[in-house]
Design a protein around this nucleic acid. Sequence first.
RNA 1: ACCGAUGUAACCCAACCGGCAGAGGUGCCAGUCUCAGAAACUGGAAGUGAGGGUUCGAAUCCCUCCAUCGGUACCA
Length: 859
Amino acid sequence: MRVARRARGRRGVLALRRASQVVIDARDMSADTHDGPRYRPQDVEPKWQRYWEEHRTFRATRHPGRSKMYVLDMFPYPSGDGLHVGHPEGYTATDIVCRYQRMKGVDVLHPMGWDAFGLPAEQHAIKTGTHPRQKTLDNIANFRRQLKMLGFSYDWDREIDTTDPGYVRWTQWIFLRLFERGLAFQQSDMPVNWCPGLGTVLANDEVKADGTSEVGGFPVEKLAIRQWSLRITRYADRLLEGLDTVDWPDTKAKQRNWIGRSEGAEVDFAVRGHDATIRVFTTRVDTLPGATYVVLAPEHPLVLSLATPDRRPAVESYVAAAAKKTDIDRSDIGREKTGESLGAFAVNPVNGEEIPIWVGDYVIGGYGSGAVMAVPAHDERDHAFAVKYGLPIVEVVEISGADVEKRATTDDGVANDAAVSRSRAPIARAMPSAEVRRVIATWLADQGRGGPKVTYKLRDWVFSRQRYWGEPIPIYFPVTCDGDPRRPGANPTIHYETPIAVDDAELPLRLPDLVEFKSTGDPAGPLGRATDWRYFQKDGKWFARETNTMPQWAGSCWYYLRFLDPRNADAAWSREAYAAWMPVDLYVGGSEHAVLHLLYARFWHQVFFDMGLVEHPEPFQKLVHQGIILGEDGQKMSKARGNVINPDDIVRRFGADALRLFEMFMGPLEQMKPWQTSGIEGIRRFLERVWVACAEGVTDDPAAYDVETRKLVHRTIKKVGEDIDSLRFNTAISAMMILVKHIGQRPVPREVARTFALLVSPFAPHLGEELWHRNGGADTLAYEPWPTYDAALTRDDTVEIGVQVNGKVRGAVRLALDADEAVAREQALLDPKVREHVDGRTVKKVVYVKGRIVNFIVG
RNA sequence: ACCGAUGUAACCCAACCGGCAGAGGUGCCAGUCUCAGAAACUGGAAGUGAGGGUUCGAAUCCCUCCAUCGGUACCA
């Protein structure tokens, strides 16, 4: 043990981990050999977990006349690695709120489940041959064990699993409602990151900068394959407006940014000598008179057809080179702008001027219309491009002291003479930019050459994956084939243009059992191989099922609704269950889901609202993100760094209550903070002191409950309650430590021990129950009324306040809380140190704030 | 580059509406206990990222800068 302790003193992660291992063993032994009663979480914790389970203590029921609270955790993906210490952070926070609210007489809904579809189980299946379902069930069992070990007060009767056919059925049912409304549709021109090596499409952040896959390093290509998409863009404005009604942190700003609403105008440029129009989007239509060229994105459909024969070879090779670049290459800002002239000319609609058309990859194909009008005088990017290629720079917005030859001015100003002379739209000299925008946009609309327009960064949501372990999309297509399409070499034609919905009564559409999950490189995905599942006959005709599956987001888009009514076989949820519990009052989860999950779920919810399935436009009233817990070295926890803390180890060594308490004590919930093993040792010492005081040092002598203790107890009740209400668990724990330090020095009155058991129970529920039980509690304290405090006892009638002379602290004085200024002044001047600085000088002013400060201003 | 958050003691963090910088934990030092150490208990030291402004008074409000983290990123 000595050796181990010394090794721990040395820093270095490896040494630390080995050493901890040794210490664990030593601790466990000492726990057994230590004589006398003491705090033994390894006995107390399983005991109360069994009790809660047997009594179904935390079953959520609505009682008429009571208020309700729906407290939701982001349910986990049950990975093979099990729980990490980040999970218990948010889960403990919500558990504290729930246990506290139950004691306050509130009906609490606090459910847990599993977001269990996902790629890792499928990859595991490819490697080992274990069916993803089996691996998923094993992982769930492990997660459930770990969560129960931490004593969370979930209503386990409501546990759900997104891969369960009873759940998939309703996810598919929802998809069909989206399909009916035209919100789910097929696109075949959607370029996606297709990775033949992995046999699937990848999200942008799964592709590395060099164009290979994050996993495996296989080449990734842009491929336009048939995809299902959801029309989230139709809800863009409502998704923005809804944010104003919810109590969320900065996440609102992230979502606004992601939606990227941008108000501006469309302008149509005719092309000289072609029957073609180039449509551009701009937020600065006031600068249209200063547009001196037009730039098309390399993907723009007109690029090749507009290029003059002499320019065509250069343009073609430019476009080909651009196609090879990854998105990351193209969006690298400091990169020099490049382009090629098409040799063609566009007509500026506001003044009839003919200006050259270029192609340049600084224009993004997918945003707006993939073309911009270039105003070098008032846009930095256009300016850089114009300087490089010798294009004219014409100033049309006047800003004093600006030289647009040197630098673009991008602020609003007023129209100058050039703007007026170059515009057929009725603008005037010195007209402010905002007004010029209105005038020109209106004029363009009158001329049929454009007009006001709003664009969004938000794109429709690609909703299909070429994977096995997801919800099958409940759609099938007619097939033309000579005979049975399932026989080898049948070569059937599938008519994707006429999708047919699976009948609701046939849901769930289950996954077929496969033995081989590996991709063949066919965009149909692994399900394409299940020919007996894929092709079926109905009324003598052959049909083919959709072989793409839904993305992992699907199940998590509505799980909070299934928790309301998890066993309902007739509906996804009932109206009554909805009315009883919705909306979610508190939603806690990682900020990594700030945009995607939280935006997708809101989108579905708004569709449900339009369908009359829900009563509130927004599902999640208050949202909180717990901060990331870093490794002991201050780095992000990762296997590669070897700084991962495993909750199983911590519980074995310190107990679940210690882990819960420590995670809440580390700092503010929303803040990122590093793990400190020495910190949890301190918490463990605190719990031992609690045990000594409230389990072993209790007295029934009423005289032991002195006034000082009584005051402190009442103050602690107040502080802990208020801190839980505002999710400041770290300071609540600090308040309890102060109380324990005080009562630990004398015999503890029974009443105090009972009160403390209640106070600590939301944080350390096993210890709370045990102390309650040992101090005469009959059964669980989970529904005991939360202690109340006497406000009079929380206030002191006298306070010590600081005395300043000219703003510098010179002493302190004890005063009645409501002492008037004359008294304060008189008492303060009794302090010799204060006298020293005041005597012999004139007091010009005295600032006295009751209960706070006395400040003498002397000259 | 832009948007947002955060900078307090060796470390994690408190400090209400601007009012004596300190609640708590860790670490460190000293004492009690001990043959000695460990543990436990008692006590102690130490600081507001930098600069300016407002104010009787600033960790707190305003401006500039620096650092760290997160998000977005040629979005026209």
